[in-house]
Every structure is written in C-alpha cells, then in structure tokens.
Design a protein around this nucleic acid. Structure first.
Lengths: 244, 244
DNA sequence: CGCGAGCTTGATGCCGATCAATGCATGTGG
DNA sequence: CCACATGCATTGATCGGCATCAAGCTCGCG
C-alpha cells in the first residue's frame, strides 16, 4: 500500500514550454500561452530507478505522471497472484489515468530502466482544464486514445495467434519509437521475455521460440534484447494473416 | 461509413432530472440544479432496433450515447475480418467514448435487442463541463472506469482459462443487473454464444461446453439463454482458482 | 572467476479449436 | 395445422498450438 523506497523529488528544471516532448505529451496542440499556464502546475519531477514502482494498486491517487525519460510497465494482478502487464509506457506518455475513477490507483507502475517523470497534480489539472477548453480537449483525447488502445489489445489477446501477437507488438513498439526519433528497424527491448509474454498473453518460452522462428525466417535479427527488423513487410503480413 | 438504416429521432420525453437511471448514468452525484443544466444538452433520443448499429467504425463522432433501454455490444475488427467484442452495455452506460480521440468512432455499436439511447452532443458536454466542475469530474471518472474495466478484461484474456473466464463474465453481468434491480441469481442472456465467445476469447463451442459443465456440476441451470445461478460461491471460487 | 538472472531449446501433454452431426425453438408459407 | 427452413445451441471426435517441465546456455556483475 505504501511505497517503501524513498521518493526523490527534484527541483524544477525544465518547463513544459521548453520540453522537447511537448508535441507528444499533454501540451500537444496548445499555444505558447497555454503551455505556460500548464507550467504552473507541473512543478515537480520524480526519479524512479529501474525496478522501483512509481505507484501501486491501492495507493491514493493524486497525480498523473508524464514519462520524461525512461520506460515503464503497468500491471494489474488478480487475488491469486497472477498478473497481467497492461501496457508499456515511454517518454511523453501518461501514467495514472486508472486512478481517476476511484481515487486509488488500480494498477502498479514499475520502471523498467532508470526513469524520470513529471508530476501533474490532477485536481489542479482539472481546474485548469475547466478554464482552458483546449487543454480539456487534449486530456479527453488522451483518455479516449487509451481506451481505443486497450480495445486493440483485447483484439490481439482474444483472436490472434502467438506469431501475430509478437509481430503486432514489435510494429507498435517501433512505430512509437520512430515517433521519438529512433530507428524504425532497430530497437533494444527494455523488458524481459516474461514481461512481453504477460502483455501478449503468452508464456516466456513461447515468446522466445517465436523470436527464434522470426530469426530463422529472416524477418528479424535477435541478439538477446537487441532486435533488428530485416523485413518489415513480412511482419505486417504476419499481423494481417487472415484467419488461418 | 454511413448508416443505411433510417435514424429515428424521438421528441424529448423524459429529462435527466426525472430519469430513473440518473444514479447510474452521467448525472451521478450531481445536484438537482446541475442535472437541470444537463437536461438542456440531452434533448434527443434515438431508437435502435435489434441488430441495427448505433454507429460504426469510421463514422464521424459527434455525440456520446447513454443507453436508456435495451442492450448493446461494441466490437472492433481487424483488416482481415476477424472481430472482437469489446464490451456489452446496458442501461445507464455510455457508448462512444472511443470516438473522442480521433473524432471518428473506433468500433461498431450494435443493439442486441430493441433499444433506446439518449444522445449527448459531445462538444456541448465539454463546454458545460468546463463550467460545472462536478460534471467534469463525473465524465473523467467514467472514462477512467472504462480504462480500468478494459485492464480487467486484459487480465481475463491474458491469463485465465475458459471456465474462469465464463464464471467472471457471469458474475460481472449479474452484478451489473443487480445494481439495476434485477435478480442476482437469474438472468436472460441477450447475446449469442458466439458473442460471448468473442468477448471472452473463446469459440462458441467452448462457451457451450463450459455452460454444460457448470450445469453438470450443479453451479448453474442453463436453458438456452435463461441462466439461473445455483451456487454463486462456487462461481467465485472458479474465478479465483489459483494458477492451476 | 563463479554466480545468478534471463534466454534458448527440446520433449511431452493438455486445453481449447476445429470439424461435423444432431437437437431445439421460432417463424413462414402452403 | 403441418412441413420445412433458419438460426442458434449442444455434443462428439479429433487435432494442433501453446503450456509445461526440464536442461543447458549467455552474459553481466560482484
């Protein structure tokens, strides 16, 4: 329920207005004026080292968090201990939307590498978005986008086979990384096979075997967590493989 | 893209303020004054007969819809035609949140029985919620709740076996029906085995077999779509069955 | 260097998919 | 009112994809 690790808050260094993630993050589409108003809310940062949790299920909800640097996973768990990774978040993406409904977080957020997040006090954000329709709009779109994304994951989990799931996963990751200026064909996975498996509804052995299969087929080059996509078209075809 | 069936709009009959669903729907927690302001927006209804769609993927997004009477499913589909039921909606629940992010609907909403919905023009709703913090709060909570629900479905699809999925599904349905004043132990399914299967990531034969198994075990009484829950505790246990 | 976490690979088995036939309820037209 | 069609549900037989169990392997790190 409570966070054991010490929470490191850092003094304000960079404002939204001068943040290079502003086109990917909450300020997207806002005017310079409007972003400056956002700056007044987002006054603190927090560092989370690899393996630490940003928040846990049941924690009191007060703020959203925008990933500034690093990489996170979120996961929910059943009473019996089984857990399910519900998403991976990279720079510019928001964490904590699950907490709004009950004022308690409904999942765990864990840093997969040393990370920093911007702390966005939610009540202040709601207040400001009552005054800035454009900000309100952005917030609604972000929440809606999360809903749409989740529905896509349901489709994946409910009706795709292992190869299709992994192919879809890789295409999604590279696409998001590309938006952030990284290569479309090379990536370093920040998560284990087990975490990928949990997200995709597969066991880690199946993930590993599927990577190997893609490598044998010349679609990927796999060296542990370093992945190179050799044939993106093939990956796309795998995803769209018509029902058997 | 366009709706073939004629759209039936009906004159305003009942306002939110006098609607018996107001504690389950958008007005939840609002004062009488505030609900009256909502009334000014929600001025039209729409009837959707069984089998008709309320909206389709790609349709222009303008409004949210609150189910007034009846029952809906929402489903997303992949390019190859496979589709996935992403939810079942009953009275008081909102449809269309998926459309906010891109201004186009991202799923199909289909009536599973003759239904009526209240039309809530979204831009007006955003405008009003800029003035009524309580309304803004309700809207945010509803969206967040949908995100949390989706994560629960991911857990189900990613890590539960057939029996657990069906048991969880039945408990969820009866719980929601009970909130609406129906029996906790008897229900009539509004959807086919195939639709249940799609939602749960199973084939219809598996759904049918699992119903039969529950009946053999004395947990349920199943007569086509009429279900009676004989042993709710057993259902709960099935859901929480620790990993094998 | 040796330990351990994470990854790969093989052998085997089971759950749920698939294929196929039958049953049951509703509706329609002769 | 019956004959038949249609859509949905049930049940059986078989198959296959992924889980499971079990070794080794790789690499980073104390």
């Amino acid at each position: 329920m409570t966070v054991a690790a010490p929470i490191r808050l850092e003094p304000f260094k960079t404002a939204c207005s001068s943040c290079n993630l502003r086109e990917l993050c909450l300020p997207v589409g806002l005017s310079a004026d409007q972003v400056q108003q956002l700056d007044t809310l987002v006054s603190s940062r927090r560092s989370v080292s690899r393996g630490e949790t940003l928040f846990r299920t049941g924690d009191n909800f007060q703020s959203l968090f925008a990933v500034r640097t690093g990489f996170f996973k979120t996961c929910v768990s059943a009473e019996d201990g089984r857990d399910q990774v519900t998403g991976f978040q990279m720079s510019g993406e928001l964490l904590g939307l699950d907490g709004i409904s009950t004022e308690r977080h409904a999942c765990d957020a864990v840093a997969l590498e040393d990370s920093t997040v911007c702390v966005i006090p939610f009540h202040d954000l709601e207040h400001l978005s009552g005054q800035l329709p454009e900000l309100q709009r952005v917030l609604h779109k972000i929440m809606s986008r999360e809903i749409v994304r989740d529905h896509g994951v349901m489709l994946l989990l409910g009706s795709m086979r292992a190869e299709e799931r992994l192919a879809a996963f890789l295409l999604n990751l590279t696409q998001r990384l590309h938006t952030r200026g990284f290569s479309r064909s090379e990536l370093i996975l920040r998560m284990t096979r087990e975490e990928i498996g949990s997200y995709l509804g597969l066991k880690l052995e199946t993930v590993s075997r599927t990577f190997s299969k893609f490598q044998d087929e010349g679609v990927l080059e796999v060296k542990q967590r370093q992945i190179r996509i050799l044939d993106q078209a093939a990956l796309r075809q795998i995803v769209n493989a018509s029902a058997c």
